[in-house]
């Protein structure tokens, strides 16, 4: 079964015509499409108003820093960016990264080759640790992405036409 990822851009989060310059090595941010739904959109839609505000700020920070192409461990501090969850899959350690850039909102994502970042979940968390069920959800999404990537079953939507 294939999966679809859709490019997320700063202009979706603000109507202001200010966009960071993309370098050749800029990270490109994608989100997963599940059941014809954009998961980042659905996650943000389900947040409370205050958390939605934090999510907007967090994504604006993410886009701007991703555009520079600099490694996240250099541009963010250890509190903002670290491994959110780690598990073994096909005999390799898979890392799910966590960004905490504003309020209570945490963005969980994985890296794929070619400066590709796939946002898995956007959660408003009052506690730092993930619950068991949150870990399972993240693991399952990640496994699906890895399998589809390896088998060339990943479809990309760069821009909604």
């Amino acid at each position: 079964m294939s999966i679809i990822i859709q490019r997320l851009k700063l202009k979706s989060f603000t109507k202001v015509n200010i966009c960071p310059t993309d370098a050749e090595s800029s990270f490109k941010i994608y989100t997963l499409i599940c059941d014809n739904k954009n998961t980042a959109f659905e996650d943000i839609k389900n947040l409370a108003e205050n958390d939605r505000k934090s999510a907007r700020t967090a994504f604006i920070k993410l886009f701007n820093n991703a555009a520079t192409g600099q490694p996240f461990q250099n541009v963010f501090d250890g509190q903002q960016y670290h491994t959110g969850h780690e598990f073994l899959y096909h005999e390799s350690h898979v890392k799910i990264w966590r960004l905490w850039l504003s309020g209570k909102v945490r963005i969980y994502f994985i890296y794929l080759p070619n400066y590709t970042i796939v946002v898995l979940k956007t959660l408003a968390k009052r506690k730092n640790d993930l619950t068991k069920s949150e870990k399972i959800v993240l693991e399952n999404i990640t496994k699906k992405i890895i399998d589809c990537y390896k088998n060339n079953l990943m479809n990309i939507i760069e821009d909604k036409s």
Partner: peptide
Amino acid sequence: IKKEELAAQLAALLS
């Protein structure tokens, strides 16, 4: 938004 871009660029320069 511009402020976030400037902050990101300063962080990038450090990196």
